[in-house]
Amino acid sequence: MVHRSRNPRRTAFAVLGAIATLAVAGCSTSAGTPSGGGDDGGPRTVNVAVLPTSNMAAVYLGEAQGFFEDEGLQLNMTTVGGGAEMIAGMQAGSFDFIVVGYVPLFAAASNGLDLQIISANDVGGATPDEEWQALVVGADSDARSAEDLEGATVGVNALKGVAEATIRASLQQQGVDDTSVQFVEIPFSEVPAALSNGTVDAAFGSEPFITGTLADGGRIVDTPSYNLGANFPNGAWATSSRLVADDPDLVDRFERAVTASVDYAAENDDAVRKILPEFTALTPELAEQIRLPIFRSGLDRDQLDTLSRILVDFGVIDRAPDLDQMISG
């Protein structure tokens, strides 16, 4: 059972909450025109949906490095609020390519939408210390490990999502009764305040909020993704099966460019930290401190099968997607 004092500490939390609010408020929400151009020998414009999060660094770096230009492509990037919005926009023809978590992808596929995964984008850490998404508690909590979370109230960014499923699987793996845990929805940006004021005992946090929590005396009590496997899948690049059928050359060119972008980000941490303030509201100082996403372009089929099974077991999706159909090439 988790116990905590009622003496909230708010030093880094208010700053980080403001950063998240600014990151979202400063984003464009209007989709561009359908992809086109290139007929006169100029670059082909493709519409791409992204998120206001640090794991988008790869595509911004790829654009800056000229990987897309080398393939005759010009990116029209639109920042949206989440995976469901991305998938709906792609189905409506507003987006050609999206970078999205596997849960909305698998959920859409299990509901009959034809989607193709063309490249991985980011994964969990190879060690617990590299995890950039983790289960955290505040400074006043006495919880030290997953075993202390039995009967706890835990905040997740979305109910019946990947965070809840992986946390429950991790708790089971460690002999904790996951059915004793109550999950409540807490957006990432509200995690620090929720921990500080006692709304939740623990919460699933992402950077920069992990760094802020640790700086304010909190701690990581579990790394659910890592417990399911080192470098566990997190996000991927996808498109519609329709575009693959209608314009395979465009898909091939984009796949080459985005793979080069992700591989470049994986090998250049300094470049990632430098570009983060350009598309998020992170300050250069905070960009230097946070745990970076782990960029990886290769798809691990065994781990995707494990994730699919977990999502079915915990009722996130009704049935497993056909990964043979979903994985392009």
Results as ranks from 00 to 15, higher is better:
Val80Trp: 07
Gly37Arg: 09
Asp177Asn: 15
Ile118Gln: 06
Phe254Arg: 13
His3Met: 10
Glu267Ser: 14
Ala12Asn: 11
Pro293His: 11
Ala57Ser: 05
Gly138Ile: 13
Ala23Asp: 03
Leu214Met: 04
Ser5Cys: 09
Gly66Ser: 12
Ala146Glu: 05
Leu311Cys: 08
Val2Asn: 02
Leu243Glu: 05
Gly66Cys: 13
Ile317Gly: 00
Asp263Trp: 00
Asn234Tyr: 07
Leu135Phe: 04
Leu307His: 01
Asn227Pro: 01
Gly218Glu: 15
Val50Lys: 05
Phe232Leu: 12
Ala287Gly: 11
Val191Met: 14
Ala92Lys: 14
Arg6Pro: 02
His3Val: 12
Asp39Tyr: 04
Val154Ser: 00
Asp222Ile: 03
Arg6Phe: 05
Val15Glu: 15
Ile19His: 02
Asp318Pro: 04
Phe232Met: 12
Leu61Ala: 02
Asn268Trp: 05
Ala238Glu: 12
Thr11Arg: 13
Ser30Leu: 14
Leu113Glu: 06
Gly62Ala: 13
Gln65Pro: 00
Glu288Arg: 10
Glu207Asp: 03
Leu105Glu: 12
Gly81Trp: 12
Ile275Tyr: 13
Ala215Val: 09
Leu113Asn: 01
Trp132Met: 08
Ala92Phe: 04
Asn157Gln: 10
Arg219Cys: 01
Leu304Phe: 05
Thr53Gln: 02
Ala287Trp: 06
Pro8Glu: 06
Ala158Ile: 15
Thr29Tyr: 04
Ala265Ile: 13
Thr166Ile: 15
